[in-house]
Nucleic acid binder design. Structure first.
Lengths: 276, 276
DNA sequence: CTTTTTTCGTAACGTATCGTACGTTTTTAT
DNA sequence: ATAAAAACGTACGATACGTTACGAAAAAAG
């Protein structure tokens, strides 16, 4: 069975009439972008008529042109997510572990390719205001990341709280949140209603929301001032939250640097308390 | 001047109305494929109307949607032609963020270069024995990782517990641990005495210890049956636990696969309980 | 709180695109 | 060489798409 459309074409190219063969050749030569354009563009580039293009893709087994384009886009999406596995070996021999690690690495890389320094700076500026409190909350699987971030932020500045337990507990804490407070939310599929409800209530109180989510964007994005989307797809039964974890670490590091002068004193003071 | 469309968006995202900002976020999160689909698809994914999408791309400076798509395709074509230049960013003035991300990626890569599939398999075999319970515990900053792992393991098998709170609480739980139980410990510098004491007591009771630590090896390694060392050095005030996080995810994934038949039933049952 | 401005979505429009029927041309078999 | 079959292109219809106009809603200014 042909795994990619390109291979599928190579297999059947010999058994094609001249016109369709030209279509196949131009598609391979400009793979896959020419296939994402219109039939007219494709046919003109190949020097054949539009119906020939349609007969060509029909011969490949697609029912219509849209289905063909969707297949190309899916393939492209997979390629963009892991360009390494494409350049290196097709890796049937490599272990599952190595493959998953590669996918995770690509997720992290891809995530930060679209996260601008500007965005990080803005969020850090928001979090570095000592006046306003920071509250962190997460979903079923992302709550540990919220905890991780809270554990660090607590050290570099005051007025940091992690919202643990059930939704009802969170709601009680809303009373203590002022208009200038910041709520950092971690939320990935499947998005929890409880988080959405809570974020909505917080937004209505004028609280700034920083959302760290997956590439499909939690509905909380509607109420969020800042949104960072991490890639989560890996060849596993679970989604990977590693990219979100790195986002948290980056924010921790940058905030620590922003509050360097004061945080240094805080850390020293804390260590004195622990040691004594 | 912005060289890529993604940067262009990042620059102007702040000055956009809420609806267009949502369009920008979904485009960045699904970059660039969503932009190659139809306006209707794009608008539906972003949760806004079609005109909002068009106003959004007009604000970016494009005269119509076709021009916008052409620009995306040109960018994509350049990327596909030289996949190597993509991994190494062309920007000469790389920010601290990118450097830290690179260091984190190298840490993860380096970590798994020295972790054998055999080791993973052995640990998974240990954890997949339904007879013995799994207990997870972590230090000050690594406890969230223990929680993360526990949250997943609880779903794929029974008899999983996360040791929360103070050391005294842990000790009380020791009574419930049998000789065949497994204790998964996360511990990085600065190694906590409390964890060491607890691990030692557990080891004396014949409990198998799986240790996930940093490259300098926690002293708990002495009592551990399996030790996985992750790299943690990054140009930041803090160490990075990302490699440990990925280790946890790998173990979660492999264990899920090992228990596939039974875990599938468990997951289905759980979702029924949640839905009902 | 009121007024003004901006922003957003519904609805309608014109166009480009896909898909098909049909006649012409080319190829193949007899 | 002739007939049959396959392939190709032109022309046309239906559909979906991008685009624009307008009124409602929200935000900002006074």
């Amino acid at each position: 069975m042909a795994t990619s459309i390109a291979e599928l074409i190579a297999d059947r190219m010999d058994a094609m009439p001249t016109g369709e063969k030209r279509a196949a050749q131009t598609l391979i030569a400009n793979y896959p972008l020419i296939g994402l354009k219109t039939v007219a563009d494709f046919s003109h580039q190949a020097g054949v008529s539009s119906p020939t293009i349609l007969r060509f893709i029909a011969r490949l087994g697609f029912h219509n042109y849209a289905e063909f384009q969707s297949a190309l886009q899916d393939e492209l999406a997979a390629q963009l997510q892991s360009p390494l596995t494409r350049t290196t070996q097709p890796s049937p021999a490599r272990g599952r572990t190595a493959q998953t690690v590669d996918a995770t690495l690509e997720n992290i890389r891809g995530t930060f390719q679209h996260v601008s320094d500007r965005q990080i700076r803005d969020i850090v500026a928001l979090l570095s205001n000592r006046r306003c409190g920071i509250h962190l909350v997460g979903g079923r699987f992302t709550d540990p990341i919220a905890r991780y971030m809270a554990a660090h932020l607590t050290i570099v500045r005051s007025n940091v709280s992690h919202l643990a337990g059930q939704e009802s507990n969170w709601r009680d804490r809303l009373i203590d949140m002022g208009k200038r407070d910041v709520l950092v939310v971690f939320d990935i599929r499947r998005y929890q209603d409880s988080l959405l409800r809570f974020a909505e209530m917080a937004a209505k109180r004028g609280i700034h929301i920083v959302l760290v989510t997956d590439q499909w964007l939690s509905p909380i994005a509607r109420f969020s001032r800042h949104v960072i989307a991490g890639r989560t797809a890996v060849p596993s039964a679970w989604d990977s939250s590693a990219a979100l974890f790195v986002i948290a670490e980056i924010l921790i590091g940058e905030l620590t640097r922003a509050l360097e002068t004061e945080s240094r004193g805080r850390i020293r003071e804390m260590e004195a308390l622990r040691g004594g």
